[in-house]
Write a protein that binds this DNA or RNA. Structure first.
Lengths: 110, 110
DNA sequence: CAGATATATGCCGTTCGAGATATATATAGC
DNA sequence: GCTATATATATCTCGAACGGCATATATCTG
């Protein structure tokens, strides 16, 4: 989860993910399209790979990288628990503030 | 988007978000529950606030922080574009690899 | 085997984020 | 106004991350 988030938090890596959403690509192609140096791309792919966000398959000297949906699925599952928030919770903050003020009056604030 | 991801990429900040999912809390409470020093909590809240993930409302000397769903909603919308991936795409990689090999044979690789 | 191509890795310098401590600001109560 | 409490900010140090460059590794070609 954390690995996924930190991997995606880097703009270039996010771009790589977006690129691979359309179709798998070899390292060189990614470098060209994102105007990055090949070594950086390899490094970023390494991070993405460690996070399980991509996987490579060798074809001759090339390595074709493709997106792995699992971590994104996980992220989606995590967000699931927050989805209710943007339905109910009209203004839970206000509610709690009022509650605190009530308590304060009652207990003479400790 | 990037702000959201980098904010959530830090474990303590993610924990803060998870804490605030249940209910808004003042800084001190967050510090106690996560066993963090107050200054770090304030710092993290600053980052979360800049990312729009939380908002504060002052009550006396306290500041009650609450979750703001909007950035999470945005993240959810971004993920939406990837949801199709974990349905179809049984093995798009394999498919592309085969395609490349075919091309190679045809064109005599460049 | 030599040369070319594709990719990965190692090293360096710089920047950035996190923790720790001290201090500043605001508010409440006396 | 003085003191205590809650929070924010400033400063420091340290380690980790990123970019650039050189280089190693693997594979293909002739």
């Amino acid at each position: 989860m954390n690995a996924t988030l930190s991997a995606l938090a880097e703009p270039n890596r996010l771009q790589i993910v977006e690129l691979l959403r359309h179709r798998p690509l070899p390292v060189g192609q990614i470098a060209v399209r994102l105007k990055l140096n090949q070594p950086q791309v390899s490094k970023h792919l390494r991070v993405l790979s460690d996070a399980g966000l991509v996987e490579a398959r060798p074809v001759a000297q090339q390595r074709i990288y493709a997106l792995r949906p699992e971590p994104l699925k996980e992220l989606d599952a995590w967000l699931e628990r927050y989805r209710r928030l943007w339905d109910d919770q009209l203004d839970r903050l206000e509610e709690v503030v009022l509650e605190l003020k009530r308590k304060e009056k009652k207990n003479g604030h400790r």
